[in-house]
Write a protein that binds this DNA or RNA. Structure first.
Lengths: 216, 216
DNA sequence: GTCAACGTTTTTGTATACAAGAAATGCCCG
DNA sequence: CGGGCATTTCTTGTATACAAAAACGTTGAC
């Protein structure tokens, strides 16, 4: 619908996710309009969109206030993320095609190669590919879309997770467990494997909390 | 943020969900503005919001087109709904309080009473109460909110489901199975019980398909 | 008769103007 | 000196005006 409003929504989202605003900050329409060199109208449209995805709270006749999730909310979102991915896996175990299974194994191999090469960025991309194949093979486009939406929302908090020493190697063996369960067409086992893989627990949990503290 | 835009978004949502528009219809801004007795501005804001919830597709420089889910999409959404509720149950099995468990049993009893009295509306309310307790007892507010959101989105398609002969009696025994699993703190069993309870399968599936055909 | 190109007409997207409600300021009174 | 109330200022919400892009119809050529 919008040409400017589109790009402004994106830029504004970037700004909020990159912590340029802190929790509770009011988004001043005229200020943002000036900043982007447009009028208030497209800025308001952009804010409307961000409100629906939960990045800002809209208080009638008061304005828009950025909403940065606290530790509890984050854990809740990660928990739902793990469940959504586990569901993808459970369904994929029944529905995955041989072709996609081959692609999944290839993606897993790419992960291993990246780890062997010490290529963190490469691992990130290959890992993303692995997971996206899983979402698609749930055979449920709605589920796929929703999962991607939440994944995207969690992206900025995600990158801090995987830099743990030895985490990548463990991640690889978890991938293999997932693939095995899919080969066996064992839905519940696949779901459990994915849930364990994605869940934020143990050392990951402490690391996340520490990073959140530091951000304040 | 909006006073008019709020109410317009609600009314427009009502209109779309109540099938006043069919799939692919263009939402004419000036026409809607006249209809609601306002200018284009609040109408546009309302449309923006509906776009995010998937009720309308926004095509840049073209306009807003209502998007009515087809049979496949509906099944996908119901499948995700079943999974979200199952997740609520799985988590609730670990986290539910004794107090809430008592309330759940009371809600179930209210369902039974309504069935005994042949009170369809009463059953609807009691059943809704039962499920909402479950969402809340997942102990995950984010999950609770998302589940409610999807439930609301599916509401218009839901009412056609439960009027099947003998369906209410079966529903009651399913409720009992859920409660039993929660009492036993058996997460996986609670999840399965809820999934079976919510899933659209068998006769429910055929009925849904038939109703969709009739709507076209 | 068909198709393409041009001009007209809608319609969307943005800017600006205006109205109304909320916050801020200062003033008066206790 | 402090608290409550009125006024002023600022901000949101809505209406209108304008610009640009897309749909539409017409005309003309092949």
């Amino acid at each position: 619908m919008a040409r400017h409003a589109d790009t402004i929504a994106e830029q504004l989202e970037e700004l909020i996710l990159s912590d340029a605003f802190s929790d509770g900050d009011r988004l001043d329409e005229v200020q943002l309009a000036k900043r982007f060199g447009v009028s208030r109208t497209p800025v308001r449209e952009a804010i409307q969109r961000l409100a629906l995805s939960g990045l800002v709270d809209l208080r009638p006749r008061r304005g828009a206030f950025v909403h940065q999730p606290d530790a509890v909310e984050l854990m809740e979102m990660f928990e739902v993320m793990a469940e959504l991915e586990a569901t993808c896996a459970r369904l994929a175990a029944q529905r995955i095609t041989d072709d996609a299974l081959a692609k999944l194994q290839a993606a897993n191999q790419a992960c291993e190669d990246a780890v062997a090469a010490g290529d963190a960025d490469g691992y990130y991309r290959a890992n993303e590919g692995f997971h996206h194949i899983l979402y698609a093979q749930s055979g449920n486009r709605f589920l796929e879309t929703e999962t991607l939406r939440l994944k995207n929302r969690l992206k900025p908090y995600r990158r801090m997770q995987l830099r743990l020493r030895g985490r990548m190697a463990q991640s690889l063996s978890e991938h293999s467990a997932i693939v095995d369960a899919l080969i066996a067409a064992d839905g519940p086992r696949a779901a459990d494997a994915v849930r364990d893989h994605v869940a934020v627990q143990g050392e990951k949990f402490h690391r996340l909390m520490a990073t959140l503290q530091a951000a304040e």
